[in-house]
C-alpha cells in the first residue's frame, strides 16, 4: 500500500469559494475545528523526510515547489485571510493534522485576529558601494576633511594619508549604510502595524553586485498600503540614495508575522 502524506499550505477561516480552482490543482480544503486547511495529498517517494531532503538539494525541484507553495497561498489570500505554513510542512495522517489544529486553535485564532485586513510587504535595500565611495566626500565630513588635508600635503605625506583615507572610507560607508537602513526602517515602521527584520542575505545568495543593507517585512493595514508604497518611493528619491537600490515586493502572505507557539489548555 502506498502511504500518502498530507502537505499543508495554509489555513483560512472563511468559507471557501474555491472548490473548483482547488480541485483543478489537486488540492483540498478540509474543515477542522472551524478552520479551512488547504492541503494536498503527496507521496512518500517525493515528500518523506528522507526524500524531501534529497529533493530540496535539487534547485529546480525546490524552485518549482517553492513557487507552487507560494502561488497556492497567494490564490487563497486573494479571497480571504490566510495563515501560511512553512514550505514542506507535512503530516503523517489526517489524525495528526487534526490533533495539531485542535491543540493550537486558540493561537491560530489570535493570529487571524492580528493579520486580518493587513498585508505583508517586503523591503530590501541594496547599496552599491562603488557608487557610494565616489560620492563619499559629499556625504562624509571626516572624508572631506581628510581629502582637504591630502591636497595640502607633500607627496610623501599625501601617500600615507591616502591609505588612511581608504580605511576611513570603508568605515564611513558602513556608517552611511547603517543610517540609511535605519532611517528607512524607522519611517516605514511608523506606517505599519508591525515589522520584522529579516536576515541580510550575502552576495552569494542574492547574486548581485551590490550589498544588501536592509531586509525587512512590514505588516500594513490594507487601506494604508498606497500611502506606505508612496513613502518607499519618496524615500528612494532622496539625494543620498543614488547609491541605494530599494526593492519593494508584495503583498505577501503574512509569513513574517505568524507566531504559533502555545498550545490551547
Amino acid at each position: 500500500m502506498i502511504n500518502e502524506l498530507i502537505y499543508v499550505y495554509c489555513i483560512s477561516v472563511d468559507p471557501q469559494e474555491l472548490i473548483n480552482e482547488l480541485r483543478s490543482r489537486g488540492l483540498k480544503s478540509i474543515c477542522i475545528d472551524g478552520f479551512n486547511v488547504i492541503i494536498k495529498n503527496v507521496q512518500e517517494k517525493e515528500f518523506s523526510e528522507e526524500n524531501l531532503k534529497q529533493n530540496i538539494a535539487d534547485l529546480h525541484w525546490l524552485e518549482a515547489n517553492a513557487r507552487e507553495h507560494i502561488n497556492v497561498i497567494g490564490m487563497i489570500m486573494g479571497y480571504t485571510s490566510v495563515i501560511p505554513f512553512k514550505f514542506g510542512t507535512i503530516f503523517n495522517s489526517r489524525e495528526s493534522l487534526e490533533k495539531f489544529i485542535i491543540a493550537y486553535s486558540a493561537s491560530l485564532l489570535r493570529n487571524f485576529d492580528f493579520i486580518r485586513g493587513k498585508e505583508e510587504w517586503s523591503v530590501k535595500i541594496y547599496c552599491n558601494r562603488k557608487t557610494l565611495s565616489k560620492h563619499i566626500d559629499e556625504l562624509s565630513e571626516p572624508a572631506a576633511a581628510l581629502e582637504k588635508q591630502i591636497m595640502a600635503s607633500s607627496p610623501g605625506k599625501a601617500f600615507l594619508l591616502q591609505r588612511k583615507k581608504a580605511d576611513l572610507i570603508q568605515d564611513e560607508m558602513d556608517r552611511i549604510c547603517k543610517e540609511c537602513g535605519q532611517s528607512y526602517f524607522n519611517e516605514l515602521s511608523i506606517q505599519s502595524e508591525a515589522n520584522s527584520l529579516n536576515n541580510l542575505l550575502p552576495k552569494e545568495v542574492t547574486g548581485r553586485e551590490d550589498t544588501m543593507i536592509l531586509n525587512a517585512a512590514f505588516l500594513v493595514t490594507k487601506d494604508k498600503v498606497t500611502e506606505f508604497k508612496g513613502s518607499v518611493t519618496k524615500s528612494a528619491s532622496r539625494e543620498v540614495d543614488s547609491s541605494f537600490n530599494v526593492e519593494l515586493t508584495g503583498p505577501w502572505p503574512p509569513f513574517s508575522f505568524i507566531s504559533i507557539n502555545e498550545k490551547t489548555q
Binding site: F47, A66, K86, G88
Partner: peptide
C-alpha cells in the same frame, strides 16, 4: 530569492512529535 526567503524561513513552524518533517 524572495520566494525562498519567505517560504523557508517563515510561516507556521511546527515542533513536536506530530510532525515528521518540519
Amino acid at each position: 530569492l524572495e520566494v525562498l526567503d519567505r517560504v523557508l524561513n517563515k510561516g507556521v513552524i511546527l515542533t513536536g512529535d506530530i510532525v515528521i518533517s518540519v
